[in-house]
Design a binder for these strands. Structure first.
Length: 418
RNA sequence: GUGGCUGUAGCUCAGUGGUAGAGCACUGGAUUGUGGCUCCGGGGGUCGCGGGUUCAAACCCCGUCAGUCACCCCA
């Protein structure tokens, strides 16, 4: 329609939706802070190198989804596609690890990925997430998962599935990868085209392929859990035992894998079953990445984190009536608009949310607006009231109207609002 | 990135070759300072955009852009 449009896949969030956004963000902040996390804000733009090294060169995100460009100084920059790498960079850059034994950070903000937009998937999307540096788990792993479930529950997102897996550590993944390729190679010809490609790039992904021709080869494949070392196994048991102790329902999903290279040991995903989610049903994904900090040149430090898609949380939340954004609507005759403005200011200074129609329209149309605004109280100011030193206070829900003295106005309004 | 479907008023949609419609929303009014219900009126659309076929295109054809669904991937 209009010639000027927002960039494809990047959406405006209009005031009508803002209540829901604020509710999600506020609930997340409060919960994270109750669990001992502190907010961190990192730049939207980072050196491209950070994501190439942090996320992994052969991942889909790095290979084809990043917004990368050269700035005027010739530096290669990238709009952040996720939050974990930036957090690690900031943590290292400011030597936070030397100042405290365990760091717990949370973040809220937009991320950028140049994918084909669909429901629940946009090119600018928003994530809330947490990261913990310096605690090897497994208790903190379970606590993190439980916090996510509690957060979603608070927002009314009850119909979720929590999937948990362990990718092992050290060379577990490598050994498993080799065994898996050895298993799949004889089936190569019957695998789907995608999976034949994945055989080289990321064979673990063949396991959760939806193509029917891949199902058989995947079903008979060795499972990653069989390759765990004793330590990895004990760690994974610890995660499960703690989740059970917390009463958090979960399922072990031995074939759960992710498209980011950095994960080790604990891996989890929260899937929404209800709401308006389409094919993008993953609300939250996360896991341990004990190797990343060392890989980026820092001291070997265990780490775990997750990210949640705010748009997806919103899609899975139940609808609810929006709270009235106003307390009072001031209705004034055209000739007394100046004193009406002063009246509105007085109420606002007292902390009330006040709107007035100052265009000089008929009282009837002002009342119509007052009604639609949702404000429970209308105050009427005309020549008579200005002369008499009072104000008419009308409770729009009840239809009752009383005259209140000007100097008792704030108290009377407060009383009417309950 | 691949395939399917859809683009008509702010929103939800009807209209399938012959002068652009409905409901909701917005807005004015229904006698002298008062909302919600009802009634009457008003504004608002180069029918996504570009090209083609035709005497004539919202309608048929091609392209393009956007949205959406599935795949892929992921939050």
């Amino acid at each position: 329609m209009a010639k000027l449009r927002s960039v494809k896949g990047m959406n405006d969030i209009l005031p009508a939706d803002m209540g829901r956004w604020h509710r999600v963000e506020a609930a997340f902040r409060h919960r994270a802070e109750r669990y001992g996390y502190a907010e961190v804000r990192t730049p939207l733009l980072e050196p491209t190198e950070l994501f190439v090294r942090g996320i992994g060169e052969v991942t889909d995100i790095v290979e084809k989804e990043m917004y990368t460009f050269e700035d005027k100084g010739g530096k290669t920059l990238t709009l952040r596609p996720e939050g974990t790498a930036s957090c690690v960079r900031a943590w290292l850059q400011h030597s936070v690890g030397g100042q405290e034994p365990v760091t717990k950070w949370y973040y809220v903000g937009p991320m950028y990925r140049r994918e084909r937009p669909a429901k629940g998937r946009y090119r600018q999307f928003h994530q809330v997430g947490c990261e913990i540096y310096g605690d090897p788990g497994p208790y903190v792993d379970a606590e993190l998962i439980d916090m996510v479930v509690g957060f979603l529950r608070e927002l009314g997102v009850l119909d979720v599935e929590v999937l948990v897996n362990s990718l092992g550590s050290g060379d577990t993944r490598e050994r498993y990868r080799e065994a898996l390729v050895a298993h799949l190679e004889p089936h190569r010809a019957t695998l789907s085209e995608d999976s034949q490609r994945r055989l080289e790039a990321n064979p673990l992904r063949v396991l959760d392929s939806k193509a029917p021709e891949d199902q058989e080869a995947a079903a008979t494949a060795p499972t990653l859990l069989d390759f765990l070392s004793d330590e990895d196994r004990a760690h994974f048991d610890g995660v499960q035992d703690t989740l059970t102790a917390l009463g958090t329902p979960f399922q072990v999903a031995p074939r759960l894998v992710r498209g980011l290279d950095y994960y080790t040991r604990t891996l989890f995903e929260v899937i929404g079953r209800g709401g308006d989610l389409g094919a993008q049903s993953t609300i939250c994904g996360g896991g341990r990445y004990d190797g990343m900090i060392g890989d980026l040149g820092g001291p070997a430090t265990p780490a775990i984190g997750f990210a949640m898609g705010v748009e997806r949380v919103l899609l899975s939340m139940p609808d609810e009536a929006a709270a009235a954004p106003l307390d009072v609507f001031v209705v004034a005759e055209a000739g007394v608009r100046a004193p009406a403005t002063a009246l509105a200011r007085e109420l606002r200074e007292a902390g009330l949310r006040v709107e007035a129609d100052l265009r000089g329209r008929s009282l009837k149309s002002q009342f119509r607006r007052a009604d639609k605004s949702g404000a429970p109280v209308a105050l009427v100011l005309g020549e008579r009231e200005v002369d008499g030193g009072g104000v008419q206070l009308k409770e729009l829900g009840k239809g009752t109207q009383t005259s209140v003295p000007r100097d008792a106005l704030v108290a009377s309004v407060r009383e009417a609002l309950g």
